[in-house]
Write a protein that binds this DNA or RNA. Structure first.
Lengths: 327, 327
DNA sequence: TTGAAAGCGCTAACAA
DNA sequence: TTGTTAGCGCTTTCAA
């Protein structure tokens, strides 16, 4: 008889200890007004039954804190890891809890958000939210790095690339770049970012067209770079900093000097970009600011001062060009 | 009357829509057996009242998934970020949710774990757990990077450094190192790790003693290195990889060749260690394995097959020496 | 298609 | 010091 077929409740413990439910509650919560002997007896009974208070029963009475669900693509990507950290940090002052979930690696990525939606007070996500969140009626939903079209389904924190991408084009033009290449990752949702970059850089390019080349996140970089160099490229804009750092390493192996032979640009502005040699120029995004906007939206939605969708639930955070040694 | 003084409940919606609570439930959850017109009316009423179903009420009935609380020191430290990611990933196959919390930055760091303990089914933490978790009676608690002494309070996943540290000593001896220095961070809990490292390296050192020098995480590295070099040191073991990477950058600025003039070793085995030049030798810890052990412990504790404390709740994950170019 | 009743596990307030 | 009562908000089961 190791365990029961259902989890012990406060009533089971009360019966076993021969006291009332309330006394069990007092013992479990270190409340005053209970004799040491009784507490002892109750705690023993609880232990014998492997009793653990239900967080739902408790929450129902105590009105627990707001819980925000955060769904990201892949936590092994530093960008999402930093984003998660920033959201956790931004929620802390409100006393909110954050449940973190990852879409990739899940059996059914699309179900992650829907599942989580039933367990939290607000849902924040990155490229994984659909309008079809069963039982999410009225729940604040914020799409990160979303587009204005998505405002129909909920709030959107947009990450505005246009301006900084234009700045980058100017910067590269000054440096004499004539044949930039965008190196993309073959992951879901990457096309739009790469497209914007390529479009912004088009004026630089000889034929008015900037090639976009997809690579694997972790493999085959040297070969890809060899081909890119053979094509005469003089600048590479990587999909993100992590890829840029890997490309940098591959370039070192190929003994291609950066920035002399090839200029290299990352996107995201992660810490790692400034820790490598040469330090990476990056289209940086202020992750703290994204998190702050997100929390502001959610907070307003919960309070009723921000609409759950539409233009009033739209925030934009601009990229910022950080010029460093790699260009 | 924009908002009510208390959050609307299902009853409020039912009244407003002129239906029963069940009908509201049916409408909110897209269940069958309700006419389109009624659903419409209910949803409108819900919207007007800003009604959002309580996750506690729901959870009470539905028996939601296990929720694990994870308390780490500081998510802006990549090590904790990777750990958090690994735990989230290890919990996913069980269908568990993970609530992530950070101790540093919190108004009362010691209260973070205690607070969270009331909202979750199990608590996993890093250097922040005390035995005094009010209301945590019977709850699985796992201390990460804990010591066997802490087994009195709960489970412990120990990170065993001794063996790999001895390996490191051998490795450095082969390289001719005579004056190693341990560079520590002035953060809580760092003393023990540095002490173990210094002790393991003591046989190498001329006087049988390895100096431990504390630095700030992000500042003053060049000055500290200048002094270290002036003292004649020929190897630096940094508290973690992040610090090692920063030291590497500072050494580059000082034009000190690594490993020729100074050998450099990190601790943690983060991805970043292999992305810099020269790649960093590191005492690597298998974070996935730590997460797996943690989940195994928690799972067993919940099932009753692993005791909540004592030797049966002890797991150890060894460090592994990864030799790369920096030594 | 709708409603009524029951119960999920817990704690706060009050009574003994 | 202990027990009793009364909800907390929701879904499931059964009845109309």
């Amino acid at each position: 008889m190791s365990g029961a077929d259902h989890r012990a409740t406060i009533v089971d413990v009360a019966e076993r200890a021969g006291v009332s439910r309330q006394t069990v509650s007092r013992a479990m919560n270190d409340m005053p007004g209970i004799s040491a002997a009784t507490r002892e007896r109750v705690l023993r009974a609880a232990q014998e039954l492997s009793y653990r208070p239900s967080r739902f029963g408790r929450g129902l009475v105590e009105q627990g804190p707001i819980t925000v669900g955060l769904v990201v693509e892949d936590l092994s990507n530093s960008y999402f890891a930093e984003l998660g950290a920033a959201v956790v940090r931004a929620c802390a002052p409100h006393g909110w809890n954050v449940v973190l979930a990852e879409a990739v690696h899940a059996p059914d990525p699309d179900a992650v958000a829907a599942d989580l939606a039933r367990r939290v007070d607000a849902l924040v996500g990155y490229g994984v939210l659909t309008a079809a969140l069963r039982g999410a009626g009225g729940m604040p939903v914020v799409q990160l790095d979303g587009t204005p079209e998505q405002l129909a389904d909920g709030g959107v924190v947009e990450i505005a690339r246009q301006e900084a991408a234009a700045e980058l084009a100017d910067h590269l033009r000054e440096r004499g770049v004539r044949r930039p290449v965008v190196v993309d990752l073959a992951v879901r949702g990457s096309a739009s970012r790469s497209g914007v970059l390529a479009a912004a850089l088009a004026p630089l390019a000889a034929g008015g067209e900037v090639p976009i080349r997809a690579v694997d996140a972790r493999r085959g970089h040297e070969e890809a770079l060899r081909e890119i160099l053979a094509d005469g490229a003089d600048a590479v804009i990587a999909f993100n900093d992590e890829l840029a750092v890997r490309l940098l390493r591959a370039l070192r192996a190929l003994e291609v000097p950066v920035p002399e032979r090839l200029r290299l640009v990352g996107v995201d502005g992660l810490e790692i970009a400034s820790l490598v040699t040469p330090e990476l120029t990056s289209l940086a995004i202020d992750i703290e600011e994204v998190a702050a906007c997100t929390v502001e939206l959610v907070s307003g939605m919960l309070a009723g001062t921000v609409p759950l969708s539409g233009e009033g639930a739209h925030r934009a955070v601009p990229y910022r060009l950080e010029v460093r040694a790699s260009t």
